[in-house]
Write a protein that binds this DNA or RNA. Structure first.
Lengths: 142, 142
DNA sequence: TCACGTATACGAAGGATGTCGTAGACAGGA
DNA sequence: TCCTGTCTACGACATCCTTCGTATACGTGA
């Protein structure tokens, strides 16, 4: 990179607001997967089942943050996500792209491909997706 | 998704090791960008310049965590990253892929393309990258 | 020599997270 | 009726992050 500190054009913005923490993300993940869940159900969905009240507490924190809501179901509450995974994912990806890969989407994609197990089918579909994006961009130019 | 909670094959793992927090990531980002930095330099690299000792403190925490090291330079310390951005980025991407996109790399890529501004050049290079990956995978099959 | 500016070290304060224990509400069965 | 099991509510507590204020060291210039 080798930029000079006198280069004041680049400043690391501190955007990161009420992003989800590790445990909160665990729980959102369960809710996204099953579309909703009671405290017990969410608890069962976690690999290390924490205490019942622990899960409840974090659900309450998430509700406080506006990430989920609940409805009464019998004697229990059923929680529903209010933010879609794609939305949260977009935020998270943008953060990584900016702060870690400094805007290079291809570096990021290279790391994704080399670092994780992705099936050939998936790679093929991803390739087609980019082909579409490229041709769509070209069309816009005309 | 509509899976049943009786489907116990899927459990949300709690991997969450000592991952970097928001502010820590801000500071790592500066160090990655410039390859090294003193306290003052890092501070200047942040959009909202926090207090000098605040930056120092977080650098000390990062050193404690093993993410950076320092050398004496004159009367000051110069800090160097010990983890590469690609490494940290790989971890972060895997987390997002698993917990938010539930393993669907193409959904993730779709969101990346639709959500962020990526130049046509970049898209083209990404497409080539996937082409390579695909043909390499095919070769391995033979 | 002495003040000043620049460094790091130390520790405290405030807030959030993640853990849970306990209390209280309530339904259903013995 | 009363016990038991299942809920949520509330609050405690340890830990961590982030923010600084203050103390201390040290080199340089007047």
């Amino acid at each position: 990179m080798l930029r000079s500190y006198e280069d004041l054009r680049i400043k690391e913005p501190n955007l990161g607001r009420d992003s989800l923490t590790e445990r909160e993300l665990d729980i959102m993940s369960v809710l996204w997967r099953y579309e909703s869940g009671t405290v017990s159900e969410v608890r069962e969905g976690l690999a290390d089942e924490p205490g019942y009240t622990t899960v409840l507490k974090i659900l309450q924190i998430l509700e406080e943050k506006g990430a989920i809501r609940h409805e009464t179901e019998g004697r229990a509450y059923r929680y529903y996500p209010l933010v879609a995974p794609e939305e949260e994912g977009g935020r998270a990806l943008k953060k990584i792209l900016d702060k870690i890969f400094h805007g290079s989407a291809e570096l990021m994609l290279a790391r994704l491909v080399s670092d994780t197990e992705i099936s050939r089918d998936q790679i093929e579909r991803m390739r087609l997706l980019l082909e579409d994006a490229a041709s769509r961009a070209e069309e816009e130019d005309r």
